[in-house]
């Protein structure tokens, strides 16, 4: 399988009053053609930074000191403005947490969907019928009628469906989903996950799915990358990472999910401590200040230890999978 999207040793720094804030450090992620890769991590781990880097939409105070991002073999960091605009929406598209980020409040949905097809041949009616077909596909009742609707006339769940329809309309090669279900109820969350799975099958695109929700990732993805404080700490097939996590952070994170605990407890697990200061990160392992397995050697950068096939963890003390 070839790669749809490849991030190699990417670092992103933000220029702040306190100095350079290292929001991403040497992150590598590969999304194969037609694969679904999840990135999971808590707030501040660099999820939004990663997406903005992929789309070349980083804020002005950001720099990329190292790394390469390639979309189907083409280096995104070197693409010109025109080429980037062409890529966004046609070859790579995004579904954001807040659908209003990608919807224009003053244009009708039909108009916005027609605008995305500006490169396409065909009459206005033909474009509209394509749009309506896609709206119907993502489960919007009365799709033809909805072309005339404005985003604010729809509920949150419906807006997210419209955003997905718009993202899928041009059959992009890569779809990026930035916490698309976080603002939705669990009942809608499962609907959206099912929808993404089906669309992915139909269009055959690759999906990079970003979330802090372990359950959603487990349900949807083939592979998962676990991020902590700007560092990818573990990566592997979903089943391996969730059933036999190797990195102490992943282990803790999975333990913390109260959904795991089928019996009532009065003392719920948590990870004591807080995120390190990214303008002055600890030497060696980034998780060291909160890790209960840390030893002296952890003050040196941990290697990526292969655990089992394509499953690795960046920890000095990670153990090889037994299964």
């Amino acid at each position: 399988m070839s790669e749809a999207l490849k991030v190699e040793d990417l670092s992103v720094h933000y220029d702040t009053r306190e100095g350079a804030l290292q929001a991403l450090r040497d992150v590598s992620i590969t999304v194969p053609e037609g694969g679904i890769v999840g990135v999971v991590g808590e707030s501040g781990c660099g999820k939004s930074t990663l997406i903005n880097a992929l789309l070349q939409l980083l804020p002005e105070n950001a720099t990329i000191p190292a790394g390469r991002i390639t979309l189907q073999g083409e280096d995104v960091t070197r693409a010109g403005t025109r080429r980037l605009r062409q890529m966004r929406g046609q070859e790579i598209s995004v579904v954001f947490q807040d659908p209003m980020t990608s919807l224009n409040p003053v244009l009708s949905i039909g108009r916005q969907m027609r605008d995305i097809q500006y490169r396409q041949q065909g009459s206005r009616a033909a474009k509209d019928s394509r749009s309506a077909a896609m709206l119907g596909r993502v489960g919007i009742p009365d799709p033809v009628g909805k072309l005339a609707a404005y985003p604010h006339e729809l509920s949150g769940g419906m807006r997210q469906r419209v955003a997905i329809a718009m993202a899928a309309l041009m059959r992009p090669r890569v779809l990026i989903a930035d916490e698309p279900t976080t603002a939705l109820d669990a009942t809608l969350e499962v609907q959206i996950i099912e929808l993404l799975k089906e669309l992915q099958q139909e269009i055959g695109c690759a999906i990079l799915f970003i979330s802090h929700h372990l359950g959603v990732i487990a349900e949807l993805c083939d592979r998962v990358v676990v991020m902590y404080a700007g560092v990818a700490v573990e990566e592997g097939p979903v089943a391996d990472v969730f059933l036999r996590p190797g990195h102490p952070y992943t282990i803790k994170l999975i333990e913390c999910d109260p959904g795991k605990l089928k019996e009532k407890v009065t003392d719920l697990p948590s990870i004591p401590g807080s995120l390190p200061d990214l303008t002055d990160p600890p030497a060696g392992c980034i998780f060291r200040p909160r890790c209960d397995r840390a030893t002296e050697i952890c003050a040196t950068p941990p290697p990526r230890k292969g655990l089992n096939g394509a499953h690795w963890a960046a920890c000095h003390h990670a153990k090889v999978d037994k299964a």
Binding site: L188, V190, G215, I217, A218, G259
Partner: peptide, 24 residues
């Protein structure tokens, strides 16, 4: 029942059948 079932779990083996509620 639908609410309780609509709760993705961090366990890839637990891909159970659930009633996905129709509509909103």
């Amino acid at each position: 029942r639908a609410l309780m079932a609509a709760n993705p779990e961090p366990d890839p083996t637990a891909r159970r059948e659930r009633i996905v509620l129709k509509g909103e």
